[in-house]
Design a protein around this nucleic acid. Sequence first.
RNA 1: CGGGGCGUAGCUUAGCCUGGUAGAGCGCCUGGUUUGGGACCAGGAGGUCGCGAGUUCGAAUCUCGCCGCCCCGACCA
Length: 588
Amino acid sequence: MKLWSQFFIPTLKESPADADITSHKLLVRAGLVRKLAGGLYTYLPLGLRVMRKITQICREEIERGGGIELEMPHLHPVENWQHGPRWPAAREIMFRADSAGDGKRPSREPEFVLGPTHEEVITPLVKAEITSYRDLPKNFYQIATKFRNEIRPRYGLMRAREFVMMDAYSFDVDDPHAIVSYQRMKAAYEAFFRRIGAHAIAVEADTGVMGGSFSHEFMVPAEVGDDDVIYCEASGYAANREKATSALVPKDLADAAPVGATELFPTPGIVTIAALEAAPYSVPADQQFKTLVFMGDGKPFVVILRGGDELEEAKLGSLGFTLFRPATPEEIEPVMGARPGSLGAVRGTIKNAGALAGVFADYAIRLIGNGVTGANQDGHHLRNVNVARDLAVTKFGDFRRVRPGEPCPLSGQPLQVRRGIEVGHIFKLGTKYSEKYGAAYTDDQKQSHPMVMGCYGIGIGRTMQAVIEQSHDADGIVWPWAIAPYQVLVCVLDPQLPEAMELATRLAAAAEAAGADVLVDDRAERPGVKFKDADLIGIPLRVTIGGKGLKEGIIELKARTSKDVRKVPLAEAETQLAAAVHSCRGVA
RNA sequence: CGGGGCGUAGCUUAGCCUGGUAGAGCGCCUGGUUUGGGACCAGGAGGUCGCGAGUUCGAAUCUCGCCGCCCCGACCA
């Protein structure tokens, strides 16, 4: 039992000026966190208790899923990263931690970096320690602070620069076994989110810079989320916008026949899809080819989409470039022969086709059949361009962004979209890291193979905030039992009465014996203040002891989720409180 | 990194346009009255007006630079 007067819960009546989403305001108002600087937060005692409860449940479920806990350094020698597969992309978001000005190194590269995640540490460890198939599978995890120099920290703990994350790494002998490890972790995640009272759904996700073959994100649906989830209720299909596909292009679609020879026509000053849609040209957007040029690891490449479609840049990750970005007009002109607005990929019109790393076409352009595209001469376009006959396509792929309403790839029903907060992510990594670091094992035929890896993350602080986002009311937080900082609040309205405090102590003991953490509000505050604070900090079960009630011989029980107050005779107070605690624990 | 906004007491903020005394509410301290949903009265403490230059007799207020914070976009392991 903890006495409020001897604890530290700095609640606020007013919302801080720099918070604008509910969960962020409540984190601060309920005295859970305080900001040090952008994206950097102190966990106050109450917030720390919630974090601890979440990490403990996480630990239990990951262990159940086969995880073995260890703890790796936060400070990494930069060499570990330089030798890894994603140094160019990762260095941008890493904080550097130079040893204090010893002048021994050029200042361009740090000696150490603060770890944003730990593939670069765990893989060399496993390479050194595990060499036999007999020692596999293994799944190592830790719950530790991570550092990422987010371009834009925001929404409190939602996107912080320093944050607590559970990260796990599985090592298996082959793909089928790796999939088993992956499925076990997926089940562990589902159990974890269920136990803490968060409604999280698994959605197919893009693998991004991580690489790897497939992955799921765990999303808590919320309007303030950073990500769009595309889903179909009929089939259960759910995917991150970056990954989502639709059945827009029929699988059995035949190539359209040419309608005539390609024909050059002047389009002075026309550099947008919309302008070509207007009179006098009147070419519908989806009869135009949109031609984009990117730089991938220093070489230009071309992406072709339908005029009305948008590129989903994340999908370009499947092309295998380590780093890519849109090309500048200055980079485009020498290769294509024209500036953006007049670009196309018709064979023979590209000025220096040899310089290209490839021409990648979205499947949906096959729906165009014959259309209009830039001629690679400023102010000119080509019509009667036939997809199969005329375009210099290296490879078709899915590069477009799906729109709500398009047919679900599984059921054909219209897809829907909603916002969500990403609280966890699981990847089947494959051998990208094990090959790079030489993490291999010897099988029973004395053959060496790279280990097949998976990696898994859960944002602990973000999960805490996501729970607040989906579990609050006008008065404050409504904590699920399992992660409430305290589960029972004994509200002593007249703490100066010795019999009131004596009763509070007895009831607290009874609740603790029943398995609850108990906070006793013994402050010399008016009742209104205590009730408002109680609602704000969201303790699931409230026991009220007042001078009036004592005279009547009753105490009161109230659930945070309900308006109903139950009056309980003093003689039954301990047993009824214990029964209420048991019933809450059962539900949770 | 681009666009926009904001920095005044622990918190929320007024004042700035039109230069001249820095104000309120909450919180805090003292005393009193209260005491079941953020009480009331009286008194009090608390401010380099983000930092630095400049203009001016005089700058919270006008100008420039810097820093910090928030929002939108881009980005996001």
